[in-house]
Structures are given as structure tokens and as C-alpha cells.
Design a protein around this nucleic acid. Structure first.
Lengths: 246, 246
DNA sequence: CGGCTTATTGAATCACATCAAAACGCGTGG
DNA sequence: CCACGCGTTTTGATGTGATTCAATAAGCCG
């Protein structure tokens, strides 16, 4: 009964259940046995909608929960005292947000939705409790944290030693890989973020990002129409990432 | 009585015991109760010496253990397919090495001793086991991983948005803070790494690092004599980090 | 439509890189 | 002890990729 005056089958709000979530092969449940999975269902007690442009959390907010992206797209960014800020990552379905908060019980970055999004709320102390009982869950959680560290090291390599073209190519290759593993096309994508946000992530100015897109287009690597990208030469892009010399 | 031809009391090799380690307030044991601490002693089953220039582990090595620096100094670095590499961090006493290995059961970076060093070997499955029993240990370990993520985000901010002078100032301020919390002087330090390694960490060329040191010296911020640094104007350095405008 | 954010493109500038040479420091062996 | 060689550091001259400033264009939404 969605409208009060008609008698219809009441549609249950989709139960939040990791065991039946189509993201379970990307998210926290990865690798868990069926019984463990069902216990995990007790963990995620709520969902939360975050409209485009709104913050899921901000630096300084008290930390209680991790968040798993169910639908939508986020950016995380840190800022220095003098106002400069740096996008530290973009998160899509199945990826975890909030790991930064564990260290001081306060978040140290902002997480902002780049489109209308929905997240699963995972109370952290519950997760710790459950992972004391299930070694597989414990292991999976540790892998996720470690993966984030490894990813960050990759970004440092990018920021510390690559030129603009290599950075943008690496960004696009990474993005398409992640989209592909979620069932999207490997060759066409819609960017959820502005040139400025891409630039912030890559340590470049927005004009440089725009110019580099144009250059890639001239070279026949991409077709760029605003935020719509078609990858014309996957191999060419890959070569750029690993240095043009090899 | 240290000479071989005298009969003396045999000096036991110092027992590896977290509960009596002078680094316990910086390292994994931080915040643990006395009984927990004593259980932790069973965890660290060996020490390992790493001579200067040698690797504790290398990218691709199988991952079994974490390492806590007891004495000495390390760098970690990742490298891209085409041979460029990036120093991702410098580790000193009480800091953990090897967190990158958890994600894939293989290390993804090299850890190299910059001076003769000694580490405590922490078998990871033992740590996971113990942290299933002691919530405080579990929490502390999670905080350490999270802290590494937060630190990495700080480095991204540095690499993505700071100029050479700000980067070097931030590096020095960070280094002296960590040394100070280990009981060393806040104003004098000896760099364990080359200009090239500093440059790699900061995303700069070694010449730029050297020039920036010279500039700081001219401005009266530092006294630089090769790897010996004396900080003459702590406040001046700090101002540089947070942007010269504020 | 008109106002707004976002994106593109050009020209001038600048911070850092590159190339090159010299000086310094340190350990080794004569 | 000093001479030698080698890795490291410093410094200068020049080059360049990215930034900055500025103007225009393109999409978006009420």
C-alpha cells in the first residue's frame, strides 16, 4: 500500500541483506561462506541516501560507522589549514568509505556524493565484534584496509613521478577497469566529476586536464564530449601509463 | 669481561618482550592493559637484523609477517613497470612495516634499511588470532592501519598541491616531530637518506632538494652541513608548511 | 530565454627539470 | 699518513611542461 486509499500488495522496502546483495563479490562480504554471510546481514542496520552534492561525512565529524557505497558515486578530499584541498579518491558501488576515521575516532576527510547515492551503514564496533568471531570477515576487512594503503601508494607514484598525460591515462584506465568489473562497458563512460575534481586528484589544474583530454582526442585515443568519454584506443592509453618508451 | 678468554656471566640476548620494550608507547602495544601486554609478548617471536642497504622485503615477496622497527631507519618504495620508483615513506623506531602485504599476501613495495637496523617479527596470523581475543589489541591494530591511510592522504596533499619549499618544510617538520616524540632534539637532526631519496619522496629532483636546502639556509631557517641539519627557525618553517599567506 | 556552472582554447609566465661541472666527504689501500 | 676513487652534494646555465590569466563557448536548469 504505497498510497493510503488503495489496497495493494505492500512492497517491503528492500531488505538490507549482504547475503543477497549483488555487490557481495566486490564489497565486504567477498569470500565469506554462506553461514558467515547470513551473520553479516545483522551488521548492516541501515541505509542512507545522500543527494548529489551533499556530504556523507566531513573532516572533524565523529566516527562511528563505515559506509559501503550501494549506488552512486563519491569523492573524498582532505584539505590543509590554508584551504588548499586534494581529492584523495573516487568511490563507486561496493567500495568502503570512512576508513580514515578509525585512527582518531574522527573523520579526517570529507566524503561528498557526486550523484544521488545510497550507502549501507556499518557500525564499526559491530564490525569489530563480528570480525572477532569470524576469521574470514576479519581477514577480508584487513585486506580491504591494506588494499587502500596499496592504492594510496600507487597514487603517490602517480603524483610524484608521472607527467600530465600519464596521469590522466592512468586515471582513465583505472576508472574503466573498476567500471568494467561492475558490468559496465570498458570503452564508454560518463565522468561523474568535473575537470577540476579530476585535476585535484591528479595534481593538475583543470585547464591542464582539459587540454590533455583534447590532446588525447587529437591523437585518436579518445572521443571526448564534455563528460562523455569513448575510449577509441585502449592499448594506446595503456602504453602511455607504463611510459611511452616501452 | 667481554673478551673471550675470561669467564664471565653470560649476558642473555635481551629478551624480546613488548611489555618491557621502551617503544611500547609508540608501537603496537600502545594503550594495552598489563595482562594484555604480557600476552602480546608471546606474539613477537624473533628479531631480525637488517644491515644498511639491505632489504627487509621486496615487492613480490610472500607476506607472512609485519615488522616493527626496533632500531634504525627504513625507506619503503614502490616502482612502476617502466622502472620509475617512488619512496612512499620513511620508518623509524616503533613504526610498522609490511601492511601493504596483507591485501594480496605478497608485498607490493620494497623496504630497505637506511642504516643498520633491527626489527621485531610479528607473524600476521598470530596477530590476527590474538586480536580476536583482545579487543584492545584489535582496536590498536586497526588504528595503526587507519593512521597509515591518513598519513598517505597527507602525502597526496603534499604531492598534489604544494610547491617545492612547502614540501621540504613539511618533510622536515614531520621528521622532527617524530624524532622529538622519541626523545631526540627538536632542533638538530641527521638525515639518514640522500637528497635523491628525499626528492623521490617529495616528488622533486635531487637538485631541487639541494637548492631548497640552500635557500632555507640563506633565509636563516636552517643550518645545513651535508646531512646534518640544525633548525634555526622552527616557526618560520611551520609557516611555510601552512602556506606563506597565513 | 537568461543566468550559472563547467569546459575549451590561447598567450605569457614561472617553477622545476635537465644538463653540466665542480667540490666535498668518506672509505680504501698503497 | 696521504693519495685515490667514488658516491653525494652543490651550484650555474638553459630548457620545458604545466600554471596562470583571460576570453569564449557550451551545456544546464529554473
Amino acid at each position: 500500500m504505497n498510497s493510503p486509499h488503495t489496497t495493494t500488495i505492500r512492497i517491503e522496502p528492500l531488505k538490507v541483506a549482504c547475503s543477497s546483495c549483488n555487490l557481495r563479490e566486490l564489497c565486504l562480504p567477498l569470500g565469506l561462506s554462506q553461514p558467515d554471510l547470513e551473520r553479516l546481514d545483522t551488521l548492516v542496520d541501515a541505509r542512507r541516501s545522500v543527494p548529489r552534492g551533499a556530504a556523507l561525512f566531513r573532516a572533524g565529524d565523529p566516527f562511528h560507522s563505515l559506509f559501503a557505497v550501494r549506488t552512486g558515486f563519491f569523492k573524498t578530499c582532505v584539505s590543509s589549514e590554508d584551504g588548499r584541498d586534494q581529492v584523495t579518491g573516487f568511490q563507486m558501488a561496493g567500495e568502503l568509505l570512512g576508513l580514515d576515521g578509525i585512527s582518531t575516532d574522527r573523520h579526517s576527510c570529507d566524503a561528498v556524493a557526486l550523484e544521488d547515492s545510497q550507502v549501507c551503514v556499518i557500525p564499526f564496533s559491530d564490525l569489530e565484534g563480528l570480525s572477532r568471531e569470524f576469521t574470514d570477515l576479519q581477514r577480508q576487512f584487513h585486506k580491504i584496509m591494506s588494499r587502500e594503503i596499496v592504492r594510496d601508494h600507487g597514487v603517490m607514484l602517480l603524483l610524484g613521478s608521472m607527467r600530465a598525460e600519464e596521469r590522466l591515462a592512468a586515471f582513465l584506465v583505472n576508472l574503466t577497469q573498476r567500471l568494467q568489473s561492475r558490468g559496465f562497458s570498458a570503452s564508454a563512460l560518463v565522468l561523474r566529476m568535473t575537470r577540476e575534481e579530476i585535476g585535484s586528484y591528479l595534481g593538475l589544474k583543470l585547464e591542464t586536464v582539459s587540454r590533455t583530454f583534447s590532446k588525447f582526442q587529437e591523437e585518436g585515443l579518445l572521443e571526448v564530449k564534455q563528460r562523455h568519454i569513448r575510449i577509441a584506443d585502449q592499448e594506446g592509453l595503456r602504453k602511455l601509463v607504463n611510459g611511452p618508451n616501452c
